[in-house]
Nucleic acid binder design. Structure first.
Lengths: 343, 343
DNA sequence: GTTAGCACTCTATCCAGATGAGTGCTAACC
DNA sequence: GGTTAGCACTCATCTGGATAGAGTGCTAAC
């Protein structure tokens, strides 16, 4: 258990280090207006805090920098969990007032806004497939052999896929099948579409429709879920402006990881439903490349179900308070907008 | 006019520098098996080549590096314009055999293949809007107030956009209009859709349809061409592995430019139709940030019209021969595949 | 409990000299 | 005349030592 003074000093050190990226010494802490102690006193406390594991010393005669444990304590106990400041809130609101477009575009632009505002890297996960269902299915013939299968989801996303139509299947038959699908599969979650197709419709189709085999093959590819979750990245190069990443090799491992969609997906998937804003510091992110990074994530939702998430990636020395404020406002607004938009 | 020996020496220097990224000296050229002259002779020629502007010296006692003019000469006159080697061709072919999906996915994956094969950054421009026309238009109601406008193009791309439907417009009226559009606007190039709507259909609609004003507003947004051309980037971080970009600041200006879609678009748009493979060296790219980069582009087409283009961005010291070979094979195959796919 | 003072530690920076790659020039060679 | 060996010269880079400065830990005084 830390004393009040230790908490204050730890707070001051983290704050200082966040803005300077240099080890902070006892003198500079002592000189701050809000700290009424001499450097010597601060030094004693710093030695204690180091022994407790909250601070680290790069070398004997350098100042202290917060350890991961120190950041963790800072985030959990010292951070002012304020909302974003009015100017920032204004910018976010203006963005939503402006862009009442389709979900995906909003999400994409939100990523840009975020990275511009924070100067960190923003990662957005598009509306999640698991919680969306089929609203409408359609096949548009392109020519004799091909058609576009169009799937409209409950969140208004449109997925499309070109399929090959065997010549022996007639247009009228195709139409019959599409109607059947629309009457039976609407409101079924996307990821269940295929199993549902086999369990509920196969029998009926087999009775009424010729060329059953070929048709099923077409539908199978049409409903193929390449619904890979969409990931929108913005401001990846902001990493390059951080002094801790002035080493090209280090930054490369990070940027490479950012190009790996599956990894990002795993990272952004919230640990527990509705956990609100999560902060993962340094090695708490499972990846070695992110050992010196922190990731702050929030989710946005529709009908109380998490639809996607928003993440900000920066150095462990990150402006936690500000980012958390902005993320909070944005995720709330995104949720509100989706609710209003899709009732 | 260069002598044969000068050409050979220039060729050797460029080759050497491409693989080493270090200024090359007379001795190392002399030691190559295919050059039968002593360092002194080479030095004399090098001095001449420098005077002619083909070589540069970073400082007095360093070796020579090719100037932009030198690279240009190399590309125009010395380069073996061979095709890619069998292994590379095999990899490309395997990719096309595997991925007979929709155009956009193919393009996206092609970008990845390219950057992996070359270790440079690949930039692909998706099928171009100017040369595609409307194949089918459709409005799918989502709820009382919204509908998804779906535009299928002649190349099989599907664009979609959510629009707001004023309550006073009835479903049957909407259907009438959609049918009208499909009968009158099919095969009209996308970028002409809106003007055509006003010039050819406005009058007829005004006569037959109530709520004309509101309807036009809906159609106007529905046909809005946010057909921003799609750009697929891959391997942007490969830039970081190049020794000439070990300076974080330099690489940042490049990566930042890569995030600017409009700039890339301008760069990748071919200077002249059907120009085949183009090589832009250093400052020939209009942007300062690319002063030390070269961009090699090729186009792929359908019915003889350029549909999109493929680009490889690397340092001016780039493996021109190899990249050109690979790009040639890929653009031909992409063209062939599109032709086969959409007849 | 707090603070001033001081010796100590360690890094970063600067400078001088050594190193070596590579050139340009001259003179000799074929 | 073209080619090459030899040599002096240049210049970036590397090395090691000296120095400055930031910051600590400890002790003693307040």
């Amino acid at each position: 258990m830390l004393t009040e003074r230790q908490r204050m000093i730890l707070n001051a050190i983290v704050d200082d280090y966040i803005s300077s990226a240099e080890p902070v010494g006892s003198r500079s802490i002592s000189k701050r207006g809000d700290v009424g102690y001499s450097p010597a006193t601060i030094r004693n406390e710093m030695a204690d805090l180091e022994e407790l594991g909250y601070l680290e010393q790069p070398h004997t005669s350098a100042g202290r920098i917060p350890s991961h444990k120190g950041y963790r304590y800072y985030v959990d106990h010292l951070l002012p969990w304020t909302s974003a400041n009015p100017a920032e809130i204004g910018a976010i609101r203006a963005f939503f007032a402006d862009k009442l477009n389709q979900t995906e575009q909003v999400v994409q632009h939100a990523a840009m806004i975020l990275s511009n505002m924070t100067n960190y890297t923003s990662i957005l996960l598009g509306p999640e497939v698991f919680h969306t269902s089929l609203r409408h299915f359609q096949l548009l013939p392109l020519d004799g052999n091909h058609a576009v299968a169009i799937i409209v989801t409950s969140t208004g996303q449109v997925e499309n896929r070109t399929v090959q139509i065997p010549p022996e299947i007639s247009v009228s038959e195709m139409e019959k099948v599409v109607n059947l699908l629309n009457s039976k599969l609407v409101n079924v979650p996307l990821y269940k579409l295929k199993s549902q197709l086999y369990s509920e419709l196969a029998e009926e189709m087999q009775r009424h429709i010729s060329h059953y085999e070929e048709l099923m093959k077409v539908l199978d590819t049409a409903l193929e879920s390449d619904h890979e979750q969409r990931i929108f990245l913005s401001g990846a190069t902001n990493m390059l402006t951080q002094p801790e990443f002035k080493d090209v090799d280090k930054v490369k491992t990070i940027l490479d990881l950012l190009e790996e969609t599956p990894t990002l997906l795993k990272m952004l998937t919230p640990a527990s439903e509705g956990a609100g804003i999560q902060v993962r510091i340094g090695t708490e992110n499972k990846h070695e490349a992110f050992a010196n990074c922190s990731l702050i994530t929030a989710t946005y939702s529709l009908d109380g179900k998490a639809l996607g998430s928003i993440g900000i990636l920066g150095p462990t020395r990150m402006e936690y308070a500000r980012v958390i404020g902005i993320l909070g406002v944005l995720s709330r607004d995104l949720t509100a907008m989706l609710a209003h938009w899709y009732k």
